[in-house]
Design a binder for these strands. Structure first.
Lengths: 127, 127
DNA sequence: TTAGGTGCAAAACCTTTGCCATCCC
DNA sequence: GGGATGGCAAAGGTTTTGCACCTAA
């Protein structure tokens, strides 16, 4: 049975307290402020556990490093092609899309992911 | 200036001749049939060159390994959560979405990626 | 008490890179 | 000829894992 350890709580609190979509590495650095000896292994293991419990989500759209977020309602993402930042996006989710496509194709569809790409405001003004 | 080498041609032909979305590793194994000594380094370098030339696309939707495809019109993808297979998808692309969202948000949007997740027909019948 | 968790370090995995020989243009 | 490319091997970056020691329940 899963335990509630201080390290796991810490990682969860970090994700709760942030509106960005941090990488494992960033979470690790943050967690070290409370647990100087915490290891990347622990971070990854706990991120996996929290995912399995459904408390957090791994954004596995694109890119090299995984990014994580505290679970929220269905929403889409925007990724800046210049700085890599990921922004939540409140374009309304099309609830019926999956069912429509399922009927048309015979595939069993669980969900869909939509990611916009472009330049965030900050990077627009710099370039 | 870019040269036309036999290895590069080979890799391109492999991607042209296939309707799947192979990983670099699969392409490597395939290319070895023609060039037994070809190396992964060459495969990756050429995949990068071909991308820069705009002849192929790297699907950087999700997952650990990159997948590549010969360039085609905008389309969406379906990924089987059981076997990992990626299938092209002819759900009509919403051409106006990017502009609408751009006007609403002030972000500069270049494109959007849409990926459906679920079970392909083969995996549905097995489970 | 004890199964589950942590830290540490090493391994695994995918991708990139340095070097030098080779090949196109 | 000479810069672009290939093969090889080593390095890089991210994630996973084995193991011995802890710790929450």
């Amino acid at each position: 049975m899963k335990r509630r350890t201080r390290q796991r709580e810490c990682i969860l609190e970090i994700l709760k307290g942030v509106r960005t979509h941090p990488t494992a590495d960033w979470i690790y650095e943050e967690a070290r402020k409370s647990f100087p000896n915490i290891s990347m292994g622990t971070v990854y293991r706990n991120l996996k556990v929290l995912q399995q419990e459904g408390v957090i989500t791994e954004l596995d759209l694109s890119g090299t490093m995984s990014r994580f977020e505290f679970k929220q309602d269905r929403h889409y993402h925007f990724r800046c092609e210049n700085c890599g930042r990921v922004i939540d996006f409140n374009e309304p989710v099309d609830k019926g899309l999956d069912r429509r496509v399922e009927r048309r194709t015979g595939l069993k569809i669980n969900c869909h992911l939509l990611e916009f790409r472009g330049l965030c405001k900050k990077c627009q003004s710099v370039n």
